[in-house]
Design a protein around this nucleic acid. Structure first.
Lengths: 337, 337
DNA sequence: TGGTAATGCTAAACAGGTTTAGTAGATAAT
DNA sequence: ATTATCTACTAAACCTGTTTAGCATTACCA
């Protein structure tokens, strides 16, 4: 176990001061009038012995870490995992590392994670906020940290965020079902006060109202198990034999819905048409293939990183917040024909 | 933006030395003979003002970070995402945080990530090693860092690891197909020198040989796109009309295989029986439901953390390595009946 | 009563960088 | 000749903790 080199070792070996080494390694040689000859000697030697500055010491002094904290609802969910993966790659290209963790939509856990990130001096935050986290996010912003939210936003907190046009997405999908002649269209969602869920409900509601149809809304508790969701849907089928189409508010509910329709022996789309929010590998291969509202995953990640990088590179704190709303795409497959 | 408190602020406010504060906060009060009365006062005050020690400074001095570095092949893959998620939860319970990143099976990227982890003073490593990473892992171990591998191992490097019984898994699945009367069983795998892939191939090969059947092996390049894999399989169908069963070496190949059989218009399991390695949500809902070799995801995560914690808590470096091999389960569904 | 031990606490060094303030010597300006 | 300016560096402070070594007191014992 060879001992790690420190900047002092480098300075001593070259008989110069560590200050000089530090200036050179941080590209401030010109500014500090270090001779080109010495700069060359130092860089050469540093490369030769493979010296890497200790980033803890660096962060301790500068307060910067080149690390971005990413908090997603659940990293084992395909939607978040894919976005996280792309954000990781993009950040890496800009010289930033990512630390990520899952919030589980749990406020307390999220608070602890934010505390840990602060403690670790992360330079910026990317968050899918759970409920009641407004104050913690506000504190971050007040203390000057760049924060970008995505998937949903906090109406009471002024931040940058990237979302999709949820209202139009479900409005459009519902209208599509209406145009196909469906009269009793149900909407299965989580009971949630998060913006994305509220907007999706509103989109459905708007289309239903416009056509003067009767709304059928099932709200599932966020903590319900798959079994419970399944039962809820089956019971709904039992009590609403006339329902001829269902729109699911996210991919997990969609998956449970597929199991339920199968279990109920319903013919899709003959007895009942289905549309899910969030496309999913499963949906293309399912029989029948499932129509889905696809979110632009790559674009979401690209814009999140873009906003964050702008803030990180800004010399003066930008007052104005940027809100990016991306379009979704209704991918028509057999389950709704 | 209120300035963060430091240990000096605490010490000054209480008119005592920061050494005392440090001892108390690290539970060394008894050992250092600090009076109970003072301990109480300090703890009370610290709690009151919400002081949290700066962990960068702490890590800088102690060399410990309470962070575990987790390197998986691809965090957007369901198998790894689920394991990562559980490892995160378990580590959290033991007071450790996780930093994770995807290796992409890319040796250079992995080397850079290991360097970054070292730099950040992570206390231990959990890795699914890519090819040619033996030296870097050996260096970690030589330098005294706890390292646990999973999913695969490095025959030339003495480490702890957690794997599944790959050989028996594919042997068993192949034998199962043979017992069902299949005569021309193909095995689709990646051309890989990684232990898990080699063992899976061996298991298939052993069963085929024992029954004196003819092996049909398709090796796909790791970097092949889904389109290329699809084409490869379709071409294989074209040139091997007699194949009546396929065993896929992992879940991704399984998914491509499903698309291919559908595209080729094959009847499953009538024309061809299918078994995939790694269970997958998709497989249960597919028509017909896909038989799969399920890995014990939770158990893998549990054992990985167990081994790592043992090393982290050990006072003397343990010489002996622990190798844990877990059983898989063949989940029989319609695609192989 | 003098020496040892225990008690309760602290000054200073340290980890490894960055940054501020400044210095010695050469050159230019007055 | 003296002062100002520039060049090329550097000493020391700083970031915020932990750890080592040690210093007054008081207590104990022969």
């Amino acid at each position: 176990m060879k001992k790690k080199l420190s900047i002092v070792d480098i300075a001593n070996s070259l008989n110069i001061s560590k200050t000089t080494v530090s200036f050179i390694l941080n590209g401030r040689a010109q500014e500090k009038r270090i001779s080109d000859e010495l700069v060359k000697r130092v860089l050469q030697y540093v490369k030769e012995v493979g010296y890497k500055p200790n980033s803890l010491a660096k962060s301790l002094r500068t307060g910067k870490s080149n690390i971005i904290g990413l908090l997603v609802q659940d990293i084992s969910n395909h939607f978040f995992a894919t976005i996280a993966r792309r954000i990781e790659d993009l950040a890496y290209q800009s010289g930033y590392k990512i630390i990520y963790s899952s919030t589980d939509n749990d406020t307390q856990k999220t608070q602890e994670l934010i505390a840990m990130f602060r403690d670790r001096h992360v330079d910026g935050y990317i968050i899918t906020p759970p409920d009641n986290i407004e104050e913690d996010i506000s504190d971050l912003i007040k203390d000057g940290f760049p924060v970008v939210l995505f998937d949903r936003y906090l109406p009471k907190v002024a931040t940058d965020y990237v979302v999709v046009d949820n209202l139009f997405s479900t409005f459009n999908a519902t209208q599509y079902l209406i145009d196909k002649g469906h009269k009793n269209i149900a909407f299965i969602t989580y009971s949630s006060i998060q913006t994305q869920m509220i907007e999706r409900l509103e989109g459905y509601d708007k289309a239903i109202r416009q056509s003067k149809l009767k709304p059928h809304i099932i709200e599932v508790d966020f903590h319900a198990t798959d079994q419970e969701i399944l039962k809820l849907i089956l019971d709904f089928f039992e009590s609403h034999k006339d329902v001829d189409a269902i729109l699911f508010a996210n991919n997990h509910l969609g998956k449970c819905g597929l199991k339920a329709t199968r279990k109920a022996g319903k013919n899709v789309p003959g007895d009942i048409a289905l549309i899910a929010f969030d496309d999913y590998e499963l949906f293309e291969l399912y029989t029948p293939a499932v129509t889905a509202i696809a979110q632009p995953i790559d674009e979401i990640a690209d814009n999140v990183i873009k906003l964050l990088m702008e803030r990180l590179n800004a010399t003066t704190p930008e007052e104005k917040n940027q809100h990016i709303t991306l379009a979704t795409e209704l991918i028509e497959r057999d389950s709704s024909r």
